[in-house]
Each structure stands twice: as structure tokens, then as C-alpha cells.
Amino acid sequence: MALNTPQITPTKKITVRAIGEELPRGDYQRCPQCDMLFSLPEINSHQSAYCPRCQAKIRDGRDWSLTRLAAMAFTMLLLMPFAWGEPLLHIWLLGIRIDANVMQGIWQMTKQGDAITGSMVFFCVIGAPLILVTSIAYLWFGNRLGMNLRPVLLMLERLKEWVMLDIYLVGIGVASIKVQDYAHIQAGVGLFSFVALVILTTVTLSHLNVEELWERFYPQRPATRRDEKLRVCLGCHFTGYPDQRGRCPRCHIPLRLRRRHSLQKCWAALLASIVLLLPANLLPISIIYLNGGRQEDTILSGIMSLASSNIAVAGIVFIASILVPFTKVIVMFTLLLSIHFKCQQGLRTRILLLRMVTWIGRWSMLDLFVISLTMSLINRDQILAFTMGPAAFYFGAAVILTILAVEWLDSRLLWDAHESGNARFDD
């Protein structure tokens, strides 16, 4: 018995066209964080690309023209004298008006014999932002004059995390709450300039795509075929072959399989920071003279006294001054041990922890910024005066060393310790 099946006739004509040209192939790229070699397709503007294995951002879609970056830099340069030299806060102490600005706080630190601690604050609040705007201006002028731009481009990517104007702005709020127990506070004209400078700096850093600047100024022929001998440069993120001198053909720094002496430098910085954190938390970090009496505060006791007036601000200072430094030390110690013992479990967790400490590390400088600003506000000789204690130097040095330890660690070593050939990683 035959089955009668109805015929289905399409209502619209289906047209099949042959592909007349070869589909576009992607360029081969190595991930600078996990060293995976993959094919990167062509990316349009405002599109980002991520590593298929570790999800690290390979290409950032946010990109401004150099002219727009230069305009932002010149605007920031105009704001800087007002943000640093004009009063941020006014207080009335014992019937006398006192003005506080950024430069005055750094000068008070240096004047009291601790120039190293003052230079830490100076670099993060004044030096690094000033280098940022002058570097962008150098790129703008240098591109037109045919100057060598490689050193500036190499420095810009590392400079971003040292620009800490946003953290200093939080420190202004913390210092205001600490001082309000002794005097009446009012915002100064410099505060508005400083807030504007923070906003412009944040926007500029978020749109400063150094890798795209490398592509514009020093374009290189990408690798179009897969080759395990391809290496990625950690300076400019170019994937290719080393030249005859073993250097990256684009930025001219040595092109090595792994960062040289990464573990040794990381261990040295980490152990030194552990040693410095002990006096930083045991010795007094601030000293207040009130009517001839002397009151010393460690980091913890200062947080407890701050909690009596504002528990939320005390929580912020606790996280930045105690929780973050010790968390960074514990995480980095764990990561280094996992590399030495070739741990194969929990790779995803370790990668996330490394990215976390990379982002939060700079916030530990908050305590030094609060001390710097408070020193310029309260300084009335023996009637009422505020000065920093010996722990300030140890704390600042420990924070900087932990930042350097994270920067010096080559994250690809975590993958080397893991089993080879993993296309995915999980716990």
C-alpha cells in the first residue's frame, strides 16, 4: 500500500549564491595573561575582544583620537594649579581661619623630617597626573615632529594605576569627618577644581587605549598563520617573532617567553612588605597634641575612634588600611606557593584573586592621604596640633611594595603550573 505524501511548494523562490571570495581570516594573537594562541577576527570600533580561555580583555573598544586626548590633557593642565594650590577646605580653629590644600599637606610631611613619605604622596597625587598630561601632550606634538614615541607609550600603561586623584578625593571626605570634632569646616574653591580634575582624569584614563596608539604610530604586520613560536610582548602586546637582537619589532624591548626574574622580584617585594606591615600596624601612625597632652593612634585605634562619629567612614578606612593590605599579602603568598608547588586545582579562583588584588591594591594609600591633609588643617603649635607617627613611612612603603609585587608577577606562570593543553579552566 503506497502512502500519498503531499508536496510542499515554497511560496518564495530560494536563491543560492556561491561564495565568490575567501572568507576573511583572523590574525593570530597570544593572550598576555595566559599565553593562549588564538585567531582574533577583525574588530570594529566600539567592540571589545576577550581571550577565549581566561576571559582577559585583549582589545578595548573604547578609543579616543589623539586630538581629543590632547584637549583633555590641556584642560587638566589648566585645572591643576587651582586643584593643588587653592584651598580645598576652610576650618575655623580657636577663632582663626585655616586653609588646607594639597601642596601644603605634602610640605608639612616633608617639613617634619619625613621627606620619603611626603614624596610618596607627591608622586601619586601630583607627579603621576602631571606625567600623564605631559605624556599625552608629548605624543600629540611628537607625532607631528617625527619624534620617538616608544618610551612614552611604554610608560603610559604602567602609569595608570599610580594616578590616585580619586583616592585622594575620598581622603578629603575622611579628613573632614575627623577634623569636624575640633573645628567648623567649609569647602574651599580649590575643592571644585579638584573634583573637576578627578572627573576629567577618570574619563581620560578610561578612554586612553595605549594598544590602539601603538597600532597608529607603529603598525606591524600581524601573524596570519598559526605558529607556536609566536611570542607576545608584555610592553606593547604585539604578537610576532623577535628581531635579530631578540627584541620586539614594535617597542624594541627584549621579547622573552616569560617575564625575567618574575618570581624572585615578586618574592622579594612580598617578604619586604610583610616585614614592614608589622611596625606599620604596631607603631603610632598619627599623633595629636591637645592642650599640651599627647595622644597617639595606631591604624586600628584611629579607626575605632573614627567609628564613634561615623561608622560608615570608619568601615571604608578599615577596608583600605587593614583589610586590603593583608588580603593582598595572603593572596600573593598563596599564588606564589601554588606556582612553586605546581598546583593544578582552583586555577579559576587564583586568576580571579590576582585580578582582584590588581584592582584594589592602590586604595591602601588612602590613610597616607588623610594624614597629609589633616596635617595641613590642624597645626596650632602646642594648643592643638596633628602630626604623623613613625608607622606612616612603614605603611606607605608596604603598600608600594605590594603594588610592585602584583605588577611583577607574570600571570602566565600560573598556567605553566597548571596542566598543559587546557582550553578551559575551572575549579
Rank of each mutant, 00 (worst) to 15 (best):
residue 189 V to Y: 08
residue 182 Y to R: 04
residue 112 Q to G: 13
residue 43 I to Q: 09
residue 156 L to D: 15
residue 275 V to K: 05
residue 418 H to R: 06
residue 185 I to Y: 08
residue 83 A to F: 02
residue 171 G to E: 01
residue 222 P to T: 11
residue 161 E to V: 15
residue 282 L to N: 12
residue 184 H to E: 15
residue 15 T to N: 11
residue 389 G to P: 01
residue 14 I to T: 14
residue 187 A to L: 14
residue 69 L to T: 06
residue 100 A to S: 14
residue 141 F to W: 03
residue 178 K to Y: 01
residue 309 S to Y: 06
residue 426 D to W: 15
residue 147 M to I: 03
residue 333 F to Q: 09
residue 223 A to V: 09
residue 368 L to T: 08
residue 340 H to Q: 07
residue 357 V to N: 10
residue 379 N to L: 03
residue 228 E to G: 10
residue 305 S to K: 06
residue 275 V to H: 07
residue 199 I to M: 12
residue 242 P to Y: 10
residue 190 G to I: 02
residue 12 K to Q: 09
residue 166 D to P: 15
residue 196 A to Y: 15
residue 3 L to K: 14
residue 141 F to Q: 01
residue 350 R to L: 10
residue 317 V to A: 09
residue 337 L to T: 12
residue 50 Y to T: 11
residue 221 R to F: 08
residue 404 L to H: 07
residue 367 D to P: 00
residue 195 V to R: 04
residue 77 L to C: 15
residue 153 L to H: 03
residue 327 T to D: 02
residue 106 I to E: 04
residue 99 D to Y: 08
residue 223 A to R: 08
residue 283 L to G: 03
residue 295 Q to E: 03
residue 379 N to D: 04
residue 121 V to P: 02
residue 183 A to C: 05
residue 331 V to T: 10
residue 104 Q to H: 12
residue 364 S to I: 00
residue 256 R to M: 11
residue 85 G to I: 03
residue 150 R to E: 02
residue 100 A to D: 06
residue 147 M to R: 03
residue 213 L to S: 12
residue 109 M to Q: 04
residue 180 Q to C: 14
residue 262 S to N: 03
residue 389 G to M: 01
residue 301 S to R: 10
residue 367 D to L: 00
residue 211 E to D: 13
residue 254 P to Q: 13
residue 269 A to R: 00
residue 119 S to Y: 02
residue 78 L to N: 12
residue 404 L to W: 04
residue 32 P to D: 12
residue 124 C to M: 10
residue 25 R to G: 10
residue 144 R to P: 01
residue 34 C to L: 00
residue 214 W to D: 01
residue 354 L to E: 09
residue 14 I to K: 08
residue 194 F to I: 13
residue 48 S to R: 15
residue 306 L to S: 00
residue 254 P to V: 15
residue 203 V to A: 14
residue 335 L to C: 10
residue 349 T to S: 14
residue 177 I to Q: 03
residue 277 L to V: 07
residue 387 T to C: 07
residue 58 I to E: 09
residue 102 V to F: 14
residue 4 N to Y: 10
residue 370 V to Q: 00
residue 391 A to R: 00
residue 252 H to N: 03
residue 212 E to V: 14
residue 305 S to E: 05
residue 354 L to T: 09
residue 266 C to S: 08
residue 139 L to S: 02
residue 155 M to V: 03
residue 220 Q to L: 07
residue 108 Q to H: 13
residue 390 P to F: 06
residue 298 T to S: 07
residue 85 G to K: 13
residue 89 L to T: 05
residue 79 L to P: 04
residue 160 K to N: 12
residue 20 G to K: 14
residue 45 S to G: 13
residue 27 D to P: 15
residue 244 Q to N: 08
residue 119 S to C: 03
residue 176 S to T: 07
residue 372 S to C: 14
residue 355 R to Y: 14
residue 236 C to N: 00
residue 251 C to K: 00
